[in-house]
Design a protein around this nucleic acid. Structure first.
Length: 424
RNA sequence: GGAGAGAUGGGUGAGUGGCUUAAACCAGCAGUUUGCUAAACUGCCGUAUGGGUAACUGUACCGGGGGUUCGAAUCCCCCUCUCUCCGCCA
């Protein structure tokens, strides 16, 4: 959510920046400014009347105390019309405030100045490419065949237990999954992140705090009886730790890492390109979150990108890093780097991480602020997050890229965790 | 799930309709004085929002939402959460 002050003070700048996201903000911005000025006008009037009302009430109290009943009754008489006027104004104010809020949340975040123009994925800027793309034999199998061959992940069994997109990991498959989670968490802790293990269901306030609610309600599983939502990413509970909080500038940046299962309904996004592990309703992910000082948030972003890159290098996967163009960026992001790994048997890049700086867009919604040492004024923090990493596509790439005649080779960094060197 | 008791600022905690501009203490910040792992004293010490270049000032907020009243932290209704006891339970 952009701040109303910014829209008020730099209207043209906001409209100009949002064009980069192919978003025409002009009409909404005009409406916001109109609502904002009538809101302020009404509030100003109402506050004046309330002030008068408070004065009279206090007088009545004093008159009653001195036994001046008649004068008190007279004063009471004056309040009735005032009260009526105040009520009329406040009744007008409420819908204006609600509409103002619902208009502001329609505006996406402004892209950072380094963001390139573009419409979609084809316009993303390749920042870096690394690793070695393996040469597989002609009879190489895709991961959905490999998991059957070695009996390590069972989709049909998951369908029996729950439904499509809820796989069951078995034997070395389960161990590989657990190993990756531990590896990612350990690496994050080494890099200075504090591990947290949050609830995987959240309430409505948290859903609103990170922007899943009210708009993306259909993307989350809802536990109706208690009105909780299964989290689509650890970003939701972890970032909401800092909802309604005022931090000290000395404490920044705060760095958290969390493993959680993630639940996504993925309504309407199924198709041939999402076979196997490419898209699931439940999957495992380790997420990193930083709460940063506005002056340093892009330093934090670079640091997070370097961290994610180091994980992929340790897993010996061929990868590329993309800086998303305006048209491919999410609604909430100011700057996003996507990480993709090469899936040799599918012969395509798979997105395994998305690292973003949201600047103050999330923190404005969350009301996460900080104070500079010795200063009274509160300012919004910058929030950032990224996957480090999402497991299913990493598993898919390891299985496909590392297949040999003797079985699937485990990257050496993982062997201390798996306890085996090959899946056969 | 049943019964009872609660929810007040960063913390402890007073406040049962107007004397509250939310006391007092602790913590924190600034200063003065003494002089040295510190104490005493004085002042400051919430958030949001409106007006104002600013100093300053209006309004709202005592778990959340409604209501009664000229006036609500205080009375009434609904909700949430916490504690105690009982029940159930990994």
């Amino acid at each position: 959510m952009l701040t109303i002050n910014l829209i008020r003070e730099k209207k043209d700048f906001v409209i100009e920046r949002l064009k980069l996201k192919n978003f025409n903000a002009e009409i909404i911005v005009e409406k916001i400014l109109e609502l904002d000025s009538s809101r302020r006008e009404i509030q100003s009037k109402a506050n004046q009347l309330e002030s008068e009302m408070n004065k009279i009430s206090k007088e009545i109290g004093n008159l009653m105390k001195n036994g001046m009943k008649e004068e008190a009754e007279n004063a009471k008489g004056k309040t009735y019309s005032l009260k009526e006027e105040i009520k009329t104004l406040l009744d007008k104010l409420e819908p204006i405030e609600n509409e103002l809020k619902s208009e502001i949340v329609k505006l996406p975040n402004m892209p950072h100045e380094s963001v390139a123009p573009g419409i979609g994925a084809d316009d993303n800027v390749k920042v870096k490419e690394g690793g070695i793309i393996p040469e597989l034999k002609d009879n190489a199998l895709a991961h959905w065949d490999l998991i059957k061959k070695y009996n390590i992940i069972d989709f049909d069994l998951g369908t029996k237990l729950t439904g499509a997109g809820f796989p069951v990991y078995i034997g070395k498959g389960a161990r590989l999954e657990r190993s990756l989670i531990s590896f990612f968490l350990d690496e994050g802790v080494k890099a200075g992140y504090t591990e947290v293990m949050p609830p995987i269901m959240v309430n409505e306030d948290s859903g609103f705090g990170t922007g899943q609610l009210p708009d993306k309600e259909g993307q989350m599983y809802h536990v109706g009886l208690d009105n909780y939502y299964l989290i689509p990413t650890a970003e939701v509970p972890v970032t909401n730790i800092y909802r309604d909080v005022i931090l000290n500038s000395d404490d920044l940046p705060l760095k958290n890492i969390a493993y959680t299962p993630c639940f996504r309904r993925e309504a309407g996004s199924w198709g041939a390109h999402v076979r196997g592990l490419n898209r699931l309703h439940q999957f495992d992910k380790v997420e990193i979150v930083q709460i940063a000082h506005p002056d340093n948030s892009y330093k934090s972003l670079e640091e997070m990108v370097a961290h994610v890159e180091s994980l992929i290098i340790k897993l010996e996967l061929p990868y590329r890093i993309l800086r998303l163009c305006g048209g491919d960026m999410s609604f909430t992001s100011s700057l996003t780097y996507d990480f993709e790994v090469w899936s040799a048997a599918q012969k395509r890049w798979l997105e395994v991480s998305s690292v973003s700086n949201f600047e103050s867009f999330q923190s404005n919604r969350l009301k996460c602020r900080f104070k500079e040492k010795g200063e009274k004024q509160t300012k919004l923090v910058h929030s950032l997050n990224g996957s480090a990493l999402a497991l299913p596509r990493i598993v898919a790439a390891i299985l496909e890229n590392n297949q040999t005649e003797n079985g699937i080779r485990i990257p050496s960094a993982l062997i201390p965790y798996t306890g085996f060197e090959i899946i056969n």
